[in-house]
Amino acid sequence: MKRIYFFCLTYILLGCSHANDTNNKEQSEKLIGEALKSKALTIGDDIIKSKRLYIAAYNNIDQQSIVNDELFIYSVNKTDSLFGSYEMNNIAFEANIKSNKEIDVDVIDGLCVMNKYMLKYSKIIDMKKFPESLQVDLNKAMSFQPTYLNTLNQSKDYLGQIKCLQLK
């Protein structure tokens, strides 16, 4: 009888110890999701703040330079980091752009300006000298450009804050 009692008590304790694992896992996933969302918002804020830099760089590109190389690499990596935050959180980036759900028009405008800079500079330089991973990330960033332009064209710009559409 003691064995049966001990056996039942062991299973009850074992079952209770695993019941909390599911709750901890859900909490951990929720915290990770919130951290990734925060990271994406931080990257978006940085893109908004650096939009004027990219406009100046876009307007003054005429040849390859070390500064432009570094800004180009930084830009590609910045967009890849943003996309990665969304992918890791299982959120469709393109759907967010179209709905302006978590990405506002300022971020979309900044991404569009960055893409115009990256595209213009990529035509000046020999892309074969850059790593293949950078070329893949650049192509991924460029794949969203029509969506950015479409979203910006549909947005109301009463204060003239959308700059990407002004760049030629």
Rank of each mutant, 00 (worst) to 15 (best):
M1F: 00
K2Y: 07
K2E: 08
R3C: 02
R3P: 01
I4K: 13
Y5K: 13
F6L: 09
T10S: 11
I12W: 12
G15K: 11
S17T: 12
A19M: 15
N20H: 07
N20M: 11
D21S: 10
N23K: 15
Q27E: 13
L31M: 14
G33Q: 03
G33K: 00
E34F: 12
L36G: 02
L36R: 12
S38Y: 13
K39C: 02
A40D: 06
L41E: 14
T42E: 12
G44E: 08
I48L: 08
S50G: 06
R52F: 05
R52I: 10
R52A: 10
R52T: 15
L53P: 00
A56P: 00
A57D: 13
Y58S: 09
N59M: 14
N60W: 02
V67L: 07
V67G: 07
E70M: 11
L71P: 02
L71Q: 03
I73Q: 04
V76C: 06
K78M: 06
D80S: 15
S81T: 07
L82N: 07
F83S: 04
G84E: 10
S85N: 10
E87C: 00
E87V: 03
M88K: 14
I91S: 07
A92H: 08
A95L: 09
N96L: 04
S99D: 11
S99V: 00
N100P: 04
K101G: 06
E102H: 12
I103T: 09
I103D: 03
D104T: 00
V107C: 14
G110E: 09
V113H: 01
K123S: 14
K123Y: 05
I125S: 08
K128P: 05
K128C: 00
K128R: 12
E132P: 01
E132Y: 05
S133Q: 15
L134G: 03
Q135C: 00
N139Y: 10
K140M: 07
K140R: 14
Q145W: 09
Q145L: 13
T147M: 06
Y148Q: 00
L149V: 14
N150P: 01
T151V: 13
T151H: 09
L152V: 02
S155F: 02
D157V: 01
Y158I: 04
Y158C: 12
L159K: 10
G160H: 03
Q161E: 11
Q161H: 07
K163L: 10
C164H: 01
C164N: 08
Q166E: 14
K168M: 05
K168V: 02
